[in-house]
């Protein structure tokens, strides 16, 4: 090799390396089969760091339950997964497509990811049926007839077919949350994200929502749930994740997680929420 080329190559070697690292080394082959993959994700709100070096993989059909004290970054993490918030460093991919602020594919990506919010966030000016059909009609381009048929089908699945023509504020919290689940399902999503879906509900309504979520899990949906419902977690989770102060502290299958977690903090947290 000519000496000047050699010198040039040596001078810029680190650049090449970092590009390779960004593209491949930090995102190795085995993670690409995962439907969701996060690698070394950091997230800041101003000076406050909400996520520290979080890495996590979710395979197709896997059910992941994330728990942890409030302010530990659970919600932030799943909100980064469908681009409602953007991480500052690291890589998050959904089906191999990167999620970031500049991505033009973000709306397309979100069509495959359903999200259920703590506060339901139904559209108050639309009837239940319209809430369910607006996504398929406006985003997926499904015909109105087909969208309505699909909507009624999913309302059946969440056990409230008779509420189709009411408005959201005429329904109870539990019913609203089930509509919100059906709204996401109507988009025929591959992944469902749940951000504390039962936290805003009255106690007597929690089970009706959890039952729907269990049925959904049984149908083979890929799910990531942030929740404190440990009974539900034990029933459906393939993987339990415990987060604290922006870090993933413990990742374990539920058997091990509930009986013999590795970290002391996790044990303490579980004893606090399972005590009574």
């Amino acid at each position: 090799m000519r000496s000047d080329i050699r010198a040039h190559y040596d001078k810029h070697k680190h650049l090449l390396y970092s590009q390779i690292e960004d593209g491949l080394a930090r995102f190795p082959m085995e993670h690409r089969n995962n439907i969701i993959s996060a690698r070394n994700v950091d997230k800041f709100y101003g000076a406050f760091q909400a996520l520290y070096d979080v890495s996590l993989n979710v395979a197709k059909g896997e059910r992941v339950v994330i728990c942890g004290p409030s302010g530990s970054g659970k919600s932030t993490l799943i909100r980064c997964m469908n681009g409602l918030e953007f991480h500052n460093s690291g890589i998050i991919t959904i089906n191999g497509v990167e999620v970031n602020e500049r991505s033009k594919q973000l709306p397309a990506l979100r069509q495959d990811i359903g999200m259920v919010f703590q506060q339901f966030n139904l559209f108050p000016h639309l009837t239940i049926l319209e809430n369910l059909t607006i996504g398929p009609i406006r985003v997926r381009g499904v015909s109105k007839v087909e969208a309505e048929e699909r909507a009624r089908n999913y309302l059946e699945r969440v056990h409230i077919p008779e509420q189709a023509d009411k408005y959201p504020n005429q329904l109870s919290g539990g019913q609203q949350q089930r509509v919100a689940i059906a709204r996401s399902l109507c988009m025929e999503t591959q992944i469902m994200l749940f951000d504390e879906p039962t936290s805003a509900l009255d106690p007597e309504m929690i089970n009706e929502v959890l039952d729907v979520m269990i049925e959904l899990a049984d149908s083979g949906m890929t799910m990531v749930c942030v929740t404190h419902e440990m009974g539900f977690a034990r029933k459906v989770a393939d993987t339990m994740i415990f987060m604290e102060a922006g870090r993933i502290v413990e990742t374990a299958p539920p058997n091990k997680f509930f009986t013999a977690p590795d970290s002391e903090r996790c044990r303490l947290f579980l004893s606090q929420i399972l005590a009574h």
């Binding site: 919010f117 966030n121 559209f123 996504g135 996401s184």
Partner: peptide, 8 residues
């Protein structure tokens, strides 16, 4: 956020 999350 709800509108975004259904891909709008």
């Amino acid at each position: 956020e709800a509108a975004k999350s259904i891909g709008m």
